[in-house]
Each structure stands twice: as structure tokens, then as C-alpha cells.
Design a binder for these strands. Structure first.
Lengths: 334, 334
DNA sequence: TTGTACGCGTTATCAT
DNA sequence: ATGATAACGCGTACAA
């Protein structure tokens, strides 16, 4: 049995208005009635309905988080942080797995709109105009997390360009000059869109007068397998290759695995540096050197921004977080 | 601007009842008015409020999923499947990260109760009496996913006991007779509760007349680190050890990593078999042999059970899914 | 086929 | 300090 505020009111011999006041600590009642009301609440195990409350309040204390997958440790790291912040402020999060598919994303946006969520975080997704327009109409705050801000909304991210530049520069300074890259943005590459990590990589190489052309770059998706096939393609295309920068750690770990099977020694034969610094880096053999983009801080920051925006109804200021190289044992000097 | 059903009704020159009927395909209106209403809905971009609807319907089309963490690939696999099923039936899922802490769990249960969720899935959590009692009172369907059913509610799981037995038997049949185990249930072990995987392991060994005592088993938590320290302890306690069964793959991967650092060859010096068959098994070096518990099937099944229960208002029948060994390269014969 | 009126469980605004 | 009452947005039994 689930009781209503009216049940409590009757049993406590007060009006439901008074019960509501006690419930929300609004004052305007005697200590005695407060005590009585609380007693009855205890006795009846009364639990106010967030649904009814949401109807009048126009606040559901629920946010949506759109993610392209639920298996990458990067995304789950995001989810982890966002959930923590949300729970701290008494909100809950609805996970929306878009599978990077526009249709499913739009369907989710519609669902979230009907559910009257307070705000929305887009994590690691492509931010299509279609989404932007729709969210604009929803009239709720949105924050982009590690998502390229092609439309004017608050975001928190790292500079992919800078981080890739740093990674390439690191390899160069270790004495490498035949360097390949494995990128994960096949579709976007085909679509000819802007690929910051690829750009950063290329620019670093040309800034240091090292030859680089499209042969040095392999485009795939983001999985281990792509890392594995990526390595095979790369050593074919660039025979005297000594180092590889992979767009993310998953690809890098795939490279490690393929190298093992091919009898290629890392880092003696080929050095590998990844990006994102996921937990796994420490565990694989050899431990993977990686560029850390402080993802957990990003996610926490994004979540906090979200709730500030909900609270204040002002748009927050975007920010770009720093990155740093975490040295392990997959890179050596030449 | 967000319109209400009344706005639509006025603009279409009908009553809101009619709009509601059209909205829910209930029939009882002319084609002409249907068309008119749909036009206005389009024009106004009207989106019905799931909140208001939930108030009368007593259905929120939202379920809660309680998980002990968000980083293990096992749990995110669960989440992945559950989300997929939920989305298919038009529901959304609220993720509740309990951190295995009773207080946070209870707080979440209260939150979910106020949000009037339709049902609850407990995944990979310990199912305390406190939770059971509370959920009982909530009066909503619950399904246990890979959670030991210490209280009478529907569940779907694998037989941990059998799977552990199979793993140990596999090692024995490969000729091993000095076998250790690394368990992850430190607290539960201390609490003296039932540990099916440990039991299965022990029973297999004694059934095959192989000596086993508490020295052969190391208890820790579920992290890589525990796997690493576990190996160190084990080789100290059982000097002529030739094989290890780890309660899950994460621990197994930790063992692999520690072995690498200690100069122990896997599988030549020590064979390792894990459990859960997570994706990583294929990627680590050497690829980890593991007992697959068909987790994704479990999660899908659990989710389907959940929505059937919500629909039918009957309790579903529990089920235990089969397991199988996935052979890779971390175990060799003696 | 369509409309009226009430209920769902809260909060907020007046009164008292 | 407390109560009555009107929203909030939707579904629905009942009436027309």
C-alpha cells in the first residue's frame, strides 16, 4: 500500500498544506504539529511522489546522459563521475545509449523531452545540427562532454589537437622519425570532417621537418581489432616504421596484441603511445604509455556545470582541461 | 515554449479528451478530426508530459538498475543489454551506483521509490535482507541478475558453484594437481557467508583426491591489484604451484601482469584460468582461458523478465543459464 | 463521434 | 500557525 499526502494529513488531523510544509521544512507550523506529522509519516511509511511533485514544480531531478556506447572504459568513467555528482545533489541519471546512430539519438531526445528531464549531457558523441536544434527547442540546459562543440553550447573537453601534437612531439624527441598513426574516425574521415587528433599529429611532424603523408595514417573504428589490423597495414605502408601513435588506448592495446602475435617487440622494435590513459594501460604487457586527458575531472566538471546551470538558469562558461603524458614502458628512445 | 494538451485541443477546436484519444490511438473519432489534431500537434510541436501521464497511469516507463560499480566490464555489459531491451519497449533506465555500500543503496531505493519506477533490477550486488524488505514494501517487481538469491525473488544467473567446479576439473584434467585459487570476496569470507565459487573449486579438488586447504586460497577484492598480490601470496604459500583459478577475469589479468613482472611464464610455469570471459581475455598476453557464463544472455533475459512482470503483474520463473570453457592460451597440460 | 467533469498527488496562494 | 482551494497536464468514465 502506498499512501498519499492526504492520508497523512487526515491521520495527523491537519491539512495537506501543513504536511507539505513540514515535508519541505518551510516553517510556519508549531513544533507540536511538526512532531505529530513526522510521526504519522513514519508510521504510514509515507513516501512523497516525485511524479506529482514534478508536475507542479517543473523539476524532475533527473538528467539524461547520451553516450555512444557503454563498453568503452572512457565512457563508463564519464558515467561513473556524472552519477556520483548527480547523486550528491539528489538527482538521478537516465543512461541513453545512442549507438552513435542518429535515429536512436533522436528517439531518445524525444523520450527525454517527454520525461521532462532537467538537463542533458552529451558525452563523446558527434554533435549533429539536428540534435542541437531539437535540444534548443526543449529549452533545457545542455553540456557537451568530450564532444566537439560545433554548435554554441557550453562544453568541457581537452584539446585533442594539442594532446595529439604533444604525443607526436614526444615520440620525435625520443628520436623517432618514421612515425605512423592509427585513427578511429573512419566515417568522419570519409565525410571529410575536421579530425583534431589527426591534425595535431600531422602538424607536429611537419613542424619538426619529418615526412608525413596519408600513407602514415590508417583509419578504422575504435576497437581492438582495428588496432590489430591497423598495425599490419602500417608496417606494410611504412616499412621502416619505429613508432606508432594511436588515437586511443583501445587501439593501442590492439597494436600491442597484434605485435605480440607477429613477433614484433614493443618497444624495442616499435614504440607505441596511446591516448586517454585508461586503467588498462597499466595492466597490459608492456604497460602502455599514454596521453592522459584527465577524463574523470572532465566528467565531474561537466556534471557540476550541468547542475549549476539548472540551478542558476544561466549558461556556464566552457573550459578546456590540460593533458599530460603518462610514461610507461611501450616507448623507448632511438 | 512547451504546450499542453489543452493548447492542442483549443487550436484544433476539439476537447482534450479527443486529443488524448488520437494520441493513444484509441479510436472513436472521425478521420477528419484525427487529421486535424495531428496537424496541430505537428505545428505546435506538442510533446505530451510523461510526468502528468505517470500521475494518472501509475506507470512511469522507467526502471532502476542497481549496480555495485560502473567500471567492471561485466557490469557495463549488463547495463548494455538492459538498456537495449528497455529502449525497445519504450522505457528508460536509471543507473544506481551503490558502490556496494548499504547506506547508498538504501538511499537509492528511497529515491527510486519516490520516483515511482516500474521495476528494479539488482545486478551483481549482495542482496541484503534490508533491501529485500524495503523492495517488498515498494510493491514493484524485482529481478536479480547474477546475484545470489538469498531471498525469494525471481533471478537469472549462472551456477557459480558448477562453473567453478568445471574450471577446477578442467585444470585437473590437464594434469595439474597443485592448484591455487584467488577469490574476490574478502568481506563475505570474513563474514563467513556462502561462497559458491570457492565451494565449487574445493569440491572439485577433493572429488579428484587432490589436496586442498585454506592455504591454497587467497582472498582479496576484485581488482587487478588483488590479482597481482594474490599471485605473490600464492606462490609463497604453495611453492610447487602449477595452476591458478581466479574468481574472475580481472583477477586473472592481474595474475598475468604480476607473472610478467616476476619473470614467471604463463602458461609454461603456471597456468591461469579466469571466469566471466570478458572481452579483455582476448587482448591480454597471453590470451586468457576463461569460463564463460553467457552474461549478455543473462542480462537480456533478466530485462525481458522484468518487463514481462511489469506487464503481467505475475512473478516470473527464475532460471539458471549454462556455462562453458573458452580455451585460449593461458593454460597448458602437465 | 465528441465533450464534461473529476481524479491523480503535490505545491503555492490566499485567507483566516 | 493553519486551512481551503486552485493550479499542474493528462486519462477516463460518463453523458450527450
Amino acid at each position: 500500500m502506498t499512501y498519499t499526502i492526504m492520508d497523512v494529513a487526515k491521520k495527523a488531523n491537519v491539512s495537506k498544506a501543513t504536511v507539505s510544509r513540514v515535508l519541505n521544512n518551510q516553517g510556519g507550523y508549531s513544533e507540536k504539529t511538526k512532531k505529530k506529522v513526522l510521526e504519522v509519516i513514519q508510521e504510514l511509511e509515507y513516501h512523497p511522489s516525485a511524479i506529482a511533485r514534478g508536475l507542479t514544480n517543473k523539476r524532475t531531478h533527473t538528467i539524461g546522459v547520451l553516450v555512444p556506447n557503454l563498453t568503452s572504459s572512457l565512457i563508463t568513467e564519464f558515467l561513473n563521475e556524472i552519477e556520483a555528482v548527480a547523486h550528491k545533489v539528489g538527482s538521478s541519471v537516465i543512461v541513453c545509449h545512442t549507438e552513435s546512430r542518429g535515429i536512436k539519438t533522436m528517439k531518445y531526445l524525444q523520450l527525454l523531452r517527454e520525461k521532462r528531464i532537467d538537463g542533458l549531457i552529451l558525452a563523446g558523441t558527434m554533435f549533429k545540427k539536428e540534435y542541437y536544434d531539437y535540444i534548443e527547442k526543449m529549452g533545457i540546459p545542455i553540456v557537451l562532454l568530450s564532444t566537439y562543440p560545433v554548435h554554441p553550447v557550453p562544453y568541457v573537453t581537452a584539446s585533442d589537437y594539442d594532446a595529439a601534437y604533444t604525443a607526436a612531439k614526444y615520440l620525435i624527441q625520443k628520436g623517432h622519425n618514421k612515425i605512423g598513426m592509427i585513427s578511429g574516425n573512419k566515417e568522419e574521415w570519409i565525410a571529410g570532417s575536421h579530425l583534431p587528433r589527426v591534425e595535431g599529429f600531422k602538424d607536429a611532424l611537419s613542424d619538426y621537418k619529418i615526412s608525413v603523408n596519408e600513407n602514415h595514417i590508417v583509419y578504422g573504428s575504435f576497437s581492438y581489432d582495428d588496432g590489430m589490423t591497423g598495425l599490419k597495414h602500417l608496417i606494410k605502408q611504412v616499412p621502416d616504421l619505429t613508432a606508432i601513435f594511436t588515437e586511443n588506448d583501445t587501439l593501442g592495446i590492439g597494436v600491442l596484441s597484434a605485435a605480440y602475435h607477429l613477433g614484433i617487440k614493443v618497444p624495442e622494435d616499435i614504440s607505441v603511445i596511446g591516448m586517454d590513459n585508461i586503467n588498462l594501460c597499466e595492466v597490459v604487457t608492456p604497460p602502455l604509455t599514454s596521453v592522459s586527458l584527465s577524463h574523470s575531472e572532465m566528467a565531474e566538471k561537466a556534471a557540476n556545470m550541468m547542475f549549476e546551470m539548472i540551478e542558476s538558469k544561466k549558461v556556464a562558461k566552457s573550459c578546456i582541461l590540460p593533458h599530460k603524458i603518462v610514461e610507461r614502458q611501450s616507448v623507448c628512445s632511438r
